[in-house]
């Protein structure tokens, strides 16, 4: 039987943490089965090193940051931002060649992106800009957690949102309950965009409430999804409201997905909007979205358990899976390119 899992490319930027999580206290995490420690040095930039002391199998994240170095909490070995050991307590000479791996890092959209693949390619494949996550004209909230499911299941999920009405009728815009209009998919070598133009329909109750828009009037709505990189989805939902009634309301949903190992994924989600600014509206929206994303997490974890127990099946695909299948094709190719 054909392998239906797409795998995870190493040559990609993955968000290992939110910027706010990384300071002068070491932050230990894992991605692509690799232990990584993140910390900030004196110029404010983030350093990513292999999270294992070169001397003994002890995580550097259990040590401390001293100036521009990180010091092992067991051996006392100190490493600079390039991963080179620069100081050992027991002798004046640093052991020749003592070092830990270091990884390229970029901060973009208040997220810390790390490149764990071929280092020379990092410069040549810049991370995708996500300006709305930091732009003042967008109000953003979000959350993050680990999902006990392989990243492929998360990609499949974001590749088609027609399940939303089934999974969570509260969050689901009423129009999703009807027949889905044609899915339009746009491909490039490494990205997949898709959209559907939904007919005019009322807003979900909660959206009318926070935005002051009419709860009964019908407005055309547009759904967009975009697989922009192996570690990034950027989706949006537009409700086209005439300017005199307040103008188009747009949600942007950003999902940074990082494979921890082949059955665990770090999921950092952000919900941005260009309407109803302010903490009060965010406080009302957060539980609605959090509850939906938690339901998705639970479902994907159940799917992973089914796969663990019974293996990959020959899943039946439907027309709406077109985008998800194109994403798998891209991922398979990127993995194949790594040799």
């Amino acid at each position: 039987m054909r392998d239906r899992s797409a795998g995870c490319p190493r040559n990609a930027w993955y968000a290992l943490a939110a910027s706010a999580e990384v300071g002068s206290t070491p932050f230990g995490t894992r991605a692509l089965d690799t232990p990584v420690v993140l910390f900030r040095v004196s110029d404010g930039s983030v350093v990513a090193l292999g999270d294992r002391d070169a001397h003994r199998p002890y995580p550097l994240s259990l040590g401390h940051v001293d100036g521009d170095t990180i010091v092992s909490g067991y051996s006392g070995f100190a490493y600079d931002r390039t991963g080179a050991c620069v100081r050992v307590p027991s002798q004046a000479q640093v052991p020749y060649g003592a070092r830990v791996p270091s990884y390229p890092v970029r901060e973009e959209g208040d997220l810390v992106w790390v490149w764990l693949g071929e280092p020379s390619l990092a410069e040549r494949r810049p991370p995708v800009p996500v300006p709305w996550l930091t732009d003042a004209s967008w109000e953003t909230f979000g959350g993050q957690w680990e999902t006990a499911a392989g990243v492929g299941l998360l990609h499949d999920n974001f590749g088609d949102i027609t399940h939303v009405a089934v999974v969570d009728p509260v969050i689901s815009p009423p129009v999703l309950a009807g027949v889905a209009p044609a899915l339009e998919v746009e491909l490039t070598e490494t990205t997949v965009h898709f959209h559907r133009d939904w007919p005019a329909a009322p807003l979900p109750e909660w959206q009318a409430k926070i935005s002051g828009a009419s709860a009964t009037a019908s407005y055309p709505q547009r759904e967009e999804g975009a697989f922009l990189a192996p570690g990034l989805w950027a989706d949006r939902w537009d409700v086209v409201i005439p300017a005199e009634e307040g103008g188009t309301q747009t949600f942007r949903f950003t999902h940074a997905v990082t494979p921890v190992d082949d059955r665990h994924t770090r999921h950092i989600w952000r919900v941005s909007r260009n309407f109803a600014p302010g903490a009060e509206a965010s406080d009302m929206l957060r539980p609605i979205f959090e509850s939906y994303y938690l339901k998705v997490r639970e479902i994907l974890e159940t799917m992973q358990q089914v796969i663990d127990r019974d293996g990959y099946g020959e899943d039946v695909n439907v027309a709406a899976d077109l985008a998800a299948l194109q994403v798998r094709k891209i991922l398979r190719r990127l993995v194949a390119d790594e040799g």
Partner: peptide, 10 residues
């Protein structure tokens, strides 16, 4: 009614 998806390149 089922609607067939439309696929194209950028």
């Amino acid at each position: 009614m089922t609607t067939q998806p439309i696929v194209r390149e950028f």
